[in-house]
Simulated scan of single mutants.
Amino acid sequence: MSICGILLAAGRGKRFDPSGQRNKLLQTLGDDAVVVRSARHMLAVLPRVVAVVRPGADAVAAQLLALGCEVTTCPLADTGMAASLAHAVGYARDTYGWIVALGDMPHVQPSTIQSLKTALEQGAGIAAPMYRGRRGNPVGFSRQYLPQLLALEGDQGARGILKHSAVTELEVDDSGILQDIDTPADLPPKD
């Protein structure tokens, strides 16, 4: 039963840099770019990770390809997260389920991804991590949600599916499920 990772890395990061000059996914955390750290944590658990990038994101694509991710470009990425997610699910539709992670969430631990994978393998339709009562990312979807995922539109991603479906919530000791890199202040100070 194969579970595929989907790494959404197609946003413009306008809150990080409204001018678009600095791509938040390429900012460094230790020895890795933000998106590389996010991908490494997924690849530690999942043999297949499909990363979605926007047109022109050649530097992001190159780093993810070098790690071993499959990279696909979503031509409609600028219309919202839903387009990128539907594109990725369509690209990787030949699997039992998907764990959908965000490229700007490099602090999610591999153990959390493993918990989501296990929940899907044990029959959960949707699995989401919880940290101290708050739901975070990534989120796992079984194949039964393929039609809904392919039909997504707008900038809400899969929120509508989560709102109207039973979700297996998994308590994890991982505050990284709530931490994304949205502004320069979210990056650790340089040494």
Rank of each mutant, 00 (worst) to 15 (best):
Q114I: 09
K190M: 13
T95Y: 06
D173A: 12
L65M: 10
L162E: 09
L46V: 13
L64I: 07
V45R: 04
A33Y: 10
L67W: 10
Q156W: 11
R143A: 13
A92Q: 02
V45C: 05
D180G: 15
C74E: 04
P188Y: 05
M81A: 12
L67E: 09
R132W: 02
L120D: 02
P184E: 03
E121D: 15
L116T: 00
R132T: 04
E169W: 06
V52G: 07
Q144R: 15
A61F: 01
V71H: 12
E169F: 08
A39V: 12
V34N: 01
S84A: 13
K163W: 11
L102W: 11
L67M: 11
R15T: 10
D78V: 05
V60S: 04
Y145F: 15
A124E: 02
K163D: 14
Q144N: 14
P129H: 11
G80Q: 10
Q122E: 15
H107E: 13
Q156V: 02
Q144A: 15
R135V: 06
P106V: 12
V167N: 00
P75L: 09
A119E: 10
A101C: 08
G160M: 01
Q179L: 12
G56D: 08
R12A: 11
L25P: 00
Y145C: 06
G30R: 03
A151W: 03
Q179F: 09
D174T: 00
G11L: 05
G97E: 09
V172A: 01
V50A: 06
A51V: 00
I99K: 02
A9S: 02
Q109S: 09
I161Q: 05
A124M: 05
V139H: 00
Q109A: 13
S142C: 08
T28Y: 13
Q144H: 14
V50S: 05
L85H: 04
N137R: 11
P18I: 03
L65R: 15
H41W: 04
V108Q: 01
Y96A: 14
S2E: 08
K117Q: 15
P184K: 02
L76V: 10
S19R: 06
P138M: 00
V45L: 04
A86Q: 07
G56R: 13
